[in-house]
Design a protein around this nucleic acid. Structure first.
Lengths: 231, 231
DNA sequence: ATCATAACATGATATTTAACATAAAGCGGT
DNA sequence: ACCGCTTTATGTTAAATATCATGTTATGAT
């Protein structure tokens, strides 16, 4: 269930995240005392659907997926969180229990900031609250827009979209190791696994991408963008 | 572009909305001075995609749709807001311009609370900020979960889902007047208009619903629920 | 190294959904 | 009432996607 690890001072994260801008030194050190950082190996479960929400999760390093069972043999991936992202920021205010599970899809360092402590800081610091609101809105808009963008695309468009997303927003490189299986890709963009494989093969045959196991190289990003926009 | 109308004191709305619980009398009257209420007839445009966000929108009465052009001859409905709902609560913190248009789909009274004024109150009142956060999360979760629920359903399941949504969450009755055309239904749940009509006809033939123009009566809600859950 | 298992891959077929065509019914304006 | 326009309606066909079947390749455990 993850192993506790020595966590850096919040000060260090504060530089990297836009989150803590409005916190004064003493407030930051208060947050610092009510957080714990854990390490999760690839595939390890961070929390399970239905678990009580006791903390806000901050991705310090790695990559995690938020996912949900929708039937006996089918899951859905809601989103993927990357370093400096917060998870549960939205749910923590409106729900007492997670409506999704979280699993590491790369070795990850996850910081848990106690909910009570966090909320106390918000209530006593309006500017901090505003920062949180802004951050929350951004995350929310991103997830929602991603979902809307996908829902009007066909299979080829969806694959193109998600590959560009990995390249541009997560790995910042046209060559990267896909952190998810083909089945998980399917769960992320609402397709069948066979079709994910099929479409990726087509892209390979068309010279748009190179595939070497989980290593993907986008050789023709413009074409991929065009396919994403059209479909 | 809507007609200005005499707006009730915020105090009155405060009772109906969970929103303003934490505002003291004097804060409430500050909000009261920076809001204006407008009336929009059915079909009237409230704001257009790209407009600057100057205010938070509160639905006092009626029903409005948030929608977005996705191509020359296609739109998408993002969500429908009902009385006591806030709109733009999320975008106001992360965006300067609307990424959707808003149109009244019933005669509606819409309250505009000036953004600056609202944000000032948040920054100076942490507890109020917490209330806003909670409210925002709820709205957000609802939209997101609705979208996710739909995406894994087939056509029949989607129609069943949206009909139950109207009955249970908006009109609180199994008989209601559909506020949207079949085309708009399609835009709301990602279908083609022809299929919306077709599936609804099927439901009628199966004795699950009665259709009289826009008047819908759900005669077998259990079956409809089953179809929604399965599909 | 060998086995068992899961992931990847591809072809054939069935099902679902979209697109096209056409017509009837409702509705606002004159 | 009549006209033009939009919405509702239904049948037909085409396209997209899911399902099923089967084989191959990777991967982890012993």
């Amino acid at each position: 269930m993850g192993t506790l690890e020595k966590s850096p001072d919040c000060q260090i994260c504060a530089f990297k995240s836009l989150m803590f801008n409005s916190l004064k030194q003493d407030q930051l050190s208060k947050i610092n005392t009510c957080k714990e950082q854990f390490h999760f190996g690839k595939g390890e479960l961070v929390c399970r659907e239905g678990d009580p929400i006791n903390a806000i999760i901050y991705v310090h390093a790695g990559l995690i997926k938020l996912h949900k069972r929708i039937s006996e043999n089918q899951s859905q991936i809601i989103s993927i969180a990357k370093p400096f992202d917060f998870v549960g920021l939205i749910s923590v205010f409106s729900k007492t229990n997670y409506f999704y599970s979280i699993t590491a899809i790369e070795d990850s360092s996850i910081c848990f900031i106690a909910k009570d402590c966090f909320i106390r800081e918000i209530a006593s610091n309006g500017q901090f609250a505003l920062d949180i609101l802004t951050r929350m809105s951004k995350t929310n808009d991103d997830v929602l827009e991603a979902k809307f963008a996908l829902s009007s695309k066909n299979l080829r468009g969806r694959i193109a979209h998600i590959l560009l997303d990995f390249a541009n927003n997560i790995y910042k490189s046209n060559e990267f190791e896909l952190p998810v299986s083909r089945r998980e890709m399917a769960e992320l963009i609402d397709m069948r696994m066979e079709n994910v494989i099929r479409v990726m093969s087509e892209f390979r045959q068309d010279g748009i991408i190179k595939i070497n196991g989980h290593i993907i190289e986008i050789t023709n990003p413009n074409m991929l963008q065009k396919i994403s926009d059209m479909g």
